[in-house]
């Protein structure tokens, strides 16, 4: 896909959002509205200029293109999806326990095939996280399910 086409789309979408932001900022009280109004107005203007320039660049042949191979796209969304699942699970299972599952699972889904290293890395990393955050820094984090399973506490 051509870079200019993506930029035109992003700039136009951004400009529309920015106009909404400008209207929202105009609703603030006088002293609080001054800077937001100026900034949102300027941002809208910049985005419109960017959109016009990108659209003009579309008329010329050649130019830069954005290439994403299917593998790139798959790995990007895989990591994003597993990260979202990890964030949802962490408060329920505990961070170290979640990482014990998240690191090898993500690595495997992304295409890393050395099973032994996946497991060893996940165990060492989770242990380090537990020691640093719970023992050394003493941060109040959610209870660890793995610890409950192994120790019954």
């Amino acid at each position: 896909m051509r870079q200019a086409a993506v930029e035109t789309g992003v700039a136009l979408a951004g400009a529309i959002l920015s106009v909404f932001g400008l209207v929202h900022a105009l609703g603030f009280t006088r002293d609080s509205a001054y800077l937001p109004t100026v900034v949102m107005g300027f941002l809208t203007l910049l985005l419109v200029v960017w959109a016009v320039r990108s659209a003009l660049a579309l008329r010329h042949e050649g130019g830069e293109s954005m290439r994403f191979s299917p593998g790139h796209v798959r790995r990007f969304f895989t990591l994003l999806a597993t990260s979202i699942v990890m964030i949802v699970a962490a408060p329920r299972l505990g961070f170290a326990t979640t990482f014990l599952l998240f690191v090898p699972l993500s690595g495997m889904l992304l295409g890393y095939r050395r099973g032994k290293w996946l497991v060893v890395t996940a165990i060492i990393f989770s242990l380090l996280i537990y020691v640093i955050f719970q023992v050394v820094l003493d941060r109040p984090l959610p209870p660890e399910m793995a610890l409950r399973l192994f120790t019954g506490i």
Binding site: M86, F99, S106, F125, I129
Partner: peptide, 13 residues
């Protein structure tokens, strides 16, 4: 491929 999830995990916590 192993480093990427570790960075995400570390930043999350």
């Amino acid at each position: 491929l192993l480093l990427a999830p570790i960075i995400i995990a570390l930043t999350t916590i």
